[in-house]
Protein backbone atom coordinates (compact mmCIF):
# COMPACT_ATOMS: atom_id res chain seq x y z
CA UNK A 1 0.00 0.00 0.00
CA UNK A 2 2.65 2.38 1.14
CA UNK A 3 4.87 1.60 -1.82
CA UNK A 4 2.00 2.29 -4.26
CA UNK A 5 1.53 5.80 -2.92
CA UNK A 6 5.25 6.23 -3.00
CA UNK A 7 5.34 5.10 -6.63
CA UNK A 8 2.55 7.44 -7.71
CA UNK A 9 4.07 10.37 -5.90
CA UNK A 10 7.45 9.82 -7.41
CA UNK A 11 5.90 9.49 -10.85
CA UNK A 12 4.21 12.85 -10.33
CA UNK A 13 7.42 14.30 -9.06
CA UNK A 14 9.29 13.01 -12.07
CA UNK A 15 6.93 14.90 -14.33
CA UNK A 16 6.28 17.93 -12.15
CA UNK A 17 9.78 18.88 -11.14
CA UNK A 18 11.23 19.11 -14.66
CA UNK A 19 8.07 20.87 -15.88
CA UNK A 20 8.22 23.49 -13.17
CA UNK A 21 11.93 24.01 -13.59
CA UNK A 22 11.65 24.35 -17.33
CA UNK A 23 8.61 26.64 -17.30
CA UNK A 24 10.12 28.95 -14.73
CA UNK A 25 13.16 29.45 -16.87
CA UNK A 26 11.16 29.95 -20.07
CA UNK A 27 11.81 33.55 -21.00
CA UNK A 28 9.84 35.23 -23.75
CA UNK A 29 12.15 38.16 -24.00
CA UNK A 30 14.84 40.00 -22.13
CA UNK A 31 13.49 40.54 -18.60
CA UNK A 32 15.57 43.68 -18.25
CA UNK A 33 12.83 45.31 -20.31
CA UNK A 34 10.49 44.83 -17.36
CA UNK A 35 12.59 46.74 -14.91
CA UNK A 36 12.26 50.48 -14.83
CA UNK A 37 15.47 51.70 -13.35
CA UNK A 38 15.63 55.22 -12.04
CA UNK A 39 18.44 56.25 -14.32
CA UNK A 40 20.41 59.41 -13.96
CA UNK A 41 20.82 61.62 -16.97
CA UNK A 42 23.91 60.62 -18.91
CA UNK A 43 25.41 64.04 -19.47
CA UNK A 44 28.85 62.82 -20.46
CA UNK A 45 27.98 62.42 -24.13
CA UNK A 46 26.72 65.95 -24.67
CA UNK A 47 28.71 67.85 -27.24
CA UNK A 48 28.27 71.49 -26.30
CA UNK A 49 29.94 72.76 -29.43
CA UNK A 50 27.22 71.19 -31.54
CA UNK A 51 24.39 72.55 -29.42
CA UNK A 52 22.30 75.47 -30.50
CA UNK A 53 21.51 77.38 -27.31
CA UNK A 54 18.29 78.76 -28.75
CA UNK A 55 16.90 75.29 -29.21
CA UNK A 56 14.50 74.44 -26.36
CA UNK A 57 15.72 70.83 -26.36
CA UNK A 58 19.34 71.93 -25.87
CA UNK A 59 18.29 74.41 -23.20
CA UNK A 60 16.30 71.78 -21.33
CA UNK A 61 19.23 69.34 -21.51
CA UNK A 62 21.65 71.91 -20.10
CA UNK A 63 19.22 72.67 -17.30
CA UNK A 64 18.83 69.02 -16.43
CA UNK A 65 22.57 68.38 -16.34
CA UNK A 66 23.23 71.48 -14.24
CA UNK A 67 20.56 70.46 -11.75
CA UNK A 68 22.00 66.98 -11.56
CA UNK A 69 25.55 68.20 -11.04
CA UNK A 70 24.38 70.39 -8.16
CA UNK A 71 22.52 67.51 -6.62
CA UNK A 72 25.50 65.17 -6.86
CA UNK A 73 27.50 67.78 -5.01
CA UNK A 74 24.87 68.11 -2.30
CA UNK A 75 24.69 64.34 -1.95
CA UNK A 76 28.09 64.44 -0.25
CA UNK A 77 27.62 64.62 3.47
CA UNK A 78 29.69 67.64 4.42
CA UNK A 79 28.69 67.53 8.04
CA UNK A 80 30.86 64.48 8.65
CA UNK A 81 33.91 66.00 7.07
CA UNK A 82 36.81 67.05 9.19
CA UNK A 83 36.74 70.67 8.20
CA UNK A 84 33.13 71.18 9.18
CA UNK A 85 33.66 69.47 12.52
CA UNK A 86 36.47 71.85 13.24
CA UNK A 87 34.31 74.77 12.29
CA UNK A 88 31.56 73.59 14.57
CA UNK A 89 34.02 73.27 17.40
CA UNK A 90 35.37 76.75 16.84
CA UNK A 91 31.87 78.16 16.82
CA UNK A 92 31.01 76.34 20.00
CA UNK A 93 34.09 77.67 21.70
CA UNK A 94 33.30 81.16 20.54
CA UNK A 95 29.77 80.92 21.86
CA UNK A 96 31.08 80.00 25.25
CA UNK A 97 33.51 82.81 25.54
Amino acid sequence: MKSKIYKTTSKFALVLIPTLTLSLSAIAHDPSLHVKKAEKADCSKMDHSKMNMKDPVAMAMMKKCKKQAKKDHKAMDHSNMEHSKNEDNKKLKKDHQ
Binding site: E39, A41, C43, Q68
Partner: peptide, 10 residues
Protein backbone atom coordinates in the same frame (compact mmCIF):
# COMPACT_ATOMS: atom_id res chain seq x y z
CA UNK B 1 20.81 60.28 -26.12
CA UNK B 2 18.72 63.46 -25.94
CA UNK B 3 15.73 61.42 -24.84
CA UNK B 4 17.75 59.82 -22.05
CA UNK B 5 18.90 63.16 -20.64
CA UNK B 6 15.49 64.84 -20.86
CA UNK B 7 13.55 61.99 -19.30
CA UNK B 8 15.92 60.83 -16.56
CA UNK B 9 14.73 61.30 -12.99
CA UNK B 10 16.77 63.92 -11.14
Amino acid sequence: MQYQVLTAID
